[in-house]
Design a protein around this nucleic acid. Structure first.
Length: 278
DNA sequence: TCCCAGGCTCTCT
DNA sequence: AGAGAGCATGGG
């Protein structure tokens, strides 16, 4: 269990085990975090945050009081999960053990459902650099100007736009998918909050009612924002890694923690440019 | 220039 | 149900 103290309007978190900021914030699960001189800055749940890891391992959340910590960032950074237990369990498999060491300190974020849905619709058949660019334009054009940063625009806001207006995003064929998602979410046809409380398979079916949401995008939303850690997004990297490393099947040891293991495998595969002919 | 990117839809079989 | 083309745009 982590410890936290509040001083000078900052939150100081310690004893949370291995928490690696670049691995967690730049591993492709979230797209709005940037690093400047060792300090990360970004926004989530309508709040701006700067954070940094000190030499003694303490993670500082700047400008964070106790209430904000407990209602926003504690859950966002998944601080109540004991990752050492997960790693101990999956390390039964030698390859998974190596992947978890290589990708050490990744925590699976609990992000805002609408932002996550919209972001991973944009991610399809796309590269991370351009995904970030499109999301930046989405926030700058349609989010709320908070003075130096922008909120992620609501589904209601996007639903009120035309395809033509979404052209500024330069998101290509994905624009019509974003619009369909915004309409179904803002209109109540899909209740994202409710999807947290129903079985993973049922929630996946609901998400796939949106045009442009298939199994992979749905599983990213389930894993990164709806608390379904058994979801296992299969993108090109994972498919490649599964063949090369495991002969196509996820090892039994990882099944109960599939989503978390997926993050380790994804990081390892992408960072080592794992290819099918290795 | 060409290939590819945290895929999905549509069509054809 | 399974295979394959097409999709917008830009990075490497």
């Amino acid at each position: 269990m982590f410890k936290v103290k509040f001083e000078n309007n900052n939150a100081y978190i310690s004893d949370m085990g291995d928490f690696d900021l670049p691995h967690t914030l730049d591993c492709g699960q979230a797209f709005r975090w940037e690093e400047t001189d060792g300090r990360w800055h970004g926004a989530a749940f309508g709040r701006y945050l700067e954070l940094e890891k000190l030499n003694d391992g303490t993670v500082v959340l700047y400008g964070t009081d106790e209430n904000t910590f407990n209602t926003v960032w504690r859950s966002y950074f998944d601080l109540d999960r004991d990752y050492s237990e997960v790693i101990a369990a999956i390390s039964e498999n030698e390859t998974l053990k190596n992947a978890a060491e290589y990708a050490h300190g990744i925590r699976v974020l609990n992000q805002e459902p609408w932002e996550t849905l919209c972001s991973f619709i944009i991610s399809q058949n796309n590269n991370i650099k351009r995904i970030k660019g499109i999301i930046n334009r989405l926030c700058e054009n349609f989010g709320q100007d908070m003075g130096g940063w922008y909120t992620f625009p609501s589904a209601e806001k996007i639903a009120g736009l035309s395809l033509d207006e979404l052209g500024v995003l330069r998101s290509g064929f994905r624009a019509k998918y974003i619009l369909d998602a915004a309409k179904k979410v803002s209109g109540g046809e899909i209740d994202l909050e409710k999807l947290k409380t129903i079985p993973t398979d049922d929630a996946r079916k609901e998400l796939m009612k949106i045009t442009g949401v298939g199994p992979k995008v749905a599983d990213c939303v389930l894993l990164f924002s709806l608390g379904h850690t058994d979801a296992f997004p299969k993108d090109v990297w994972i498919k490649r890694a599964m063949e090369v490393l495991f002969g196509g099947e996820l090892p039994q040891a990882a099944v109960p923690y599939a989503g978390i293991a997926q993050q380790y495998i994804f990081f390892y595969a992408r960072d080592t440019k794992l290819s099918a002919d290795q």
